[in-house]
Deep mutational scan, measured.
Amino acid sequence: MAAAAAAGAGPEMVRGQVFDVGPRYTNLSYIGEGAYGMVCSAYDNVNKVRVAIKKISPFEHQTYCQRTLREIKILLRFRHENIIGINDIIRAPTIEQMKDVYIVQDLMETDLYKLLKTQHLSNDHICYFLYQILRGLKYIHSANVLHRDLKPSNLLLNTTCDLKICDFGLARVADPDHDHTGFLTEYVATRWYRAPEIMLNSKGYTKSIDIWSVGCILAEMLSNRPIFPGKHYLDQLNHILGILGSPSQEDLNCIINLKARNYLLSLPHKNKVPWNRLFPNADSKALDLLDKMLTFNPHKRIEVEQALAHPYLEQYYDPSDEPIAEAPFKFDMELDDLPKEKLKELIFEETARFQPGYRS
């Protein structure tokens, strides 16, 4: 834990890192770190609560700039109880001085990944967590956004079992017609939660990839272990087919990539493993919904509104309290091709509203 900075004593240090967030945020305490930044909790002297502050230093890398800009653009436009918001952003007053960006968010005690390492969940908890994931996802999908990296560590939890989806750095506007060349190379989302079509096709992607990830998360809540822990690309596919069985001819016809289709045709026939054999203690309604989410063919996979209306979630289902976005989200430009200098300018502009004396 960093010592509390005395008023006016300059930035606090946390594990050798400068955290320049005073005077409003003090009493910093280390939480963890990701690929390009550290997260601390801090005391907000204005709202009198502890908050989470993520320090991001992305400006050396085009990919990190892209992810940072995506996350900020999306989260500043989203407003939903099951999606983490941005409360404040701290950065230098000029673009030349801006080396880091500090993002202030609600402090959540833990995440689903940490929880599943230590606790076996009751059916009631599984049901409530799944409902909140789908409630947040309904809003995301209504904005025409794909999260693309749903996994237990991106689901934040607090002691009252509130759940918030975080990390929109890989999110995209849904565009089933656009052929994202190089899709697989830039697709760094965790393999275990990846839909089979991501490994088999490169053309376009749809909201059904997020539903697949939610199915993987439900299976993990039922058993405290990942359902498809593939060691590499082909191993991942083999794990999936080992449980779902061989795809039907109709399902194979959806695979545009001939090499991928021929690979699947070359494999020995596998039978589907019954879900109640894998999860003998699970609620039968939970397994019915799991089956509809972990469907090989993305066109037959359940959609988020149908999933919310499934009998497993009937005690929570309330369409009048499951809000959607006001308007579909649009990125003005494809960020993939922009140089990091341009992305830095866009991050600077996007964060201006939090600067003292800002006038829109």
Rank of each mutant, 00 (worst) to 15 (best):
Arg50Phe: 04
Tyr358Ser: 11
Asn262Glu: 10
Glu12Lys: 13
Asn87Gly: 09
Ile31Asp: 15
Gln105Leu: 12
Asn271Lys: 11
Leu137Met: 10
Leu107Gln: 14
Glu81Ser: 14
Pro152Phe: 03
Gly182Ser: 02
Asp283Ala: 11
Leu289Cys: 08
Leu75Thr: 02
Ala309Tyr: 02
Arg359Ala: 08
Pro319Arg: 06
Ile324Leu: 13
Tyr43Trp: 14
Tyr25Asp: 02
Lys340Val: 04
Gly34Asn: 00
His61Ile: 05
Asp179Arg: 11
Phe296Tyr: 14
Ala352His: 06
Asp332His: 07
Asp175Thr: 07
Glu303Tyr: 08
Asn47Val: 13
Gly85Tyr: 13
Pro268Phe: 01
Thr68Pro: 15
Asn201Arg: 07
Tyr25Arg: 12
Glu349Cys: 02
Leu200Pro: 00
Ala3Trp: 07
Glu220Arg: 03
Asn253Glu: 09
Ile209Met: 04
Pro323Tyr: 10
Ile74Lys: 09
Asp337Lys: 08
Arg79Ile: 14
Gln355Phe: 02
Ala260Asp: 12
Asp111Pro: 02
Ala327Tyr: 00
Val173Glu: 15
Leu258Cys: 10
Pro196Gly: 08
His299Val: 13
Gly22Glu: 13
Glu96Lys: 11
Phe19His: 08
Lys151Tyr: 04
Asp175Ser: 06
Lys285Val: 07
Tyr25Ile: 08
His269Ile: 09
Leu265Glu: 04
Asn154Tyr: 14
Ile347Ser: 14
Gly85Cys: 15
Ile302Leu: 14
Cys161Pro: 01
Arg261Pro: 10
Glu33His: 06
Gln132Lys: 13
Arg91Ile: 11
Gly37Met: 12
Ser57Asp: 00
Leu313Trp: 05
Ser360Met: 11
Leu267Asn: 01
Ser208Gln: 06
Asp251Thr: 04
Trp275Ala: 03
Asn47Cys: 12
Tyr316Cys: 04
Lys300Ser: 05
Ser266Ala: 00
Ala307Cys: 03
Lys117Gly: 10
Leu157Pro: 09
Gln17Arg: 13
Asp235Lys: 04
Leu76Met: 12
Asn271Asp: 00
Ile209Leu: 09
Glu12Asn: 10
Ser41Asn: 13
Ala2Pro: 12
Tyr205Gly: 06
Leu137Ala: 07
Thr118Asp: 02
Thr160Asp: 04
Pro58Thr: 15
Asp177Cys: 09
Val101Ile: 11
Ala282Trp: 02
Ala195Gly: 06
Asp100Leu: 13
Gln315Asp: 09
Pro298Tyr: 00
Pro319Met: 06
Arg225Cys: 10
Cys254Glu: 05
Asn45Cys: 11
Met333Ala: 06
Arg191Phe: 01
Cys254Lys: 03
Leu222Trp: 03
Leu252Pro: 12
Asp179Asn: 13
Cys40Gly: 08
Asn238Lys: 13
Asp162Met: 00
Glu326Leu: 06
Lys99Pro: 10
Lys73Trp: 04
Leu258Gln: 15
Thr159Lys: 09
Leu335Asp: 06
Arg135Gln: 03
Val39Asp: 00
Asn123Arg: 06
Leu116Thr: 01
Gly169Tyr: 02
Ile84Cys: 03
Pro328Gln: 04
Asp167His: 06
Lys55Asp: 09
Gln17Val: 10
Glu81Pro: 07
Asp177Ser: 03
Glu326Ser: 03
Lys54His: 00
Val39Gln: 07
His80Gly: 04
Pro339Ala: 08
Thr181Tyr: 05
Leu200Trp: 11
Asp291Thr: 04
Gln66Phe: 09
Asn253Gly: 07
Asn27Phe: 04
Ala352Asp: 11
Gln132Leu: 15
Asn253Thr: 11
Glu186Thr: 09
Pro339Tyr: 12
Glu197Tyr: 03
Gly230His: 01
Met98Asn: 02
Leu134Gln: 14
His61Tyr: 14
Leu264Ala: 06
Ala4Lys: 02
Gln105Gly: 07
Ile72Cys: 01
Glu60Ser: 09
Glu305Gly: 00
Ile243Tyr: 01
Phe279Asn: 05
Leu218Ile: 10
Ile240Trp: 02
Gln105Thr: 09
Ile103Gln: 09
Glu326His: 01
Asp179Ala: 14
Leu313Val: 05
Tyr36Gly: 15
Lys292Cys: 06
Val188Lys: 04
Glu250Arg: 07
Leu163Arg: 05
Arg301Gly: 00
Asn154Lys: 12
Pro229Thr: 14
Ile90Tyr: 01
Cys161Gln: 12
Leu155Tyr: 08
Arg91Glu: 02
Pro23Ser: 09
Phe296Val: 12
Arg194Ile: 14
Val46Gly: 12
Tyr102Asp: 12
His269Asn: 14
Pro226Gly: 06
Ala2Asn: 02
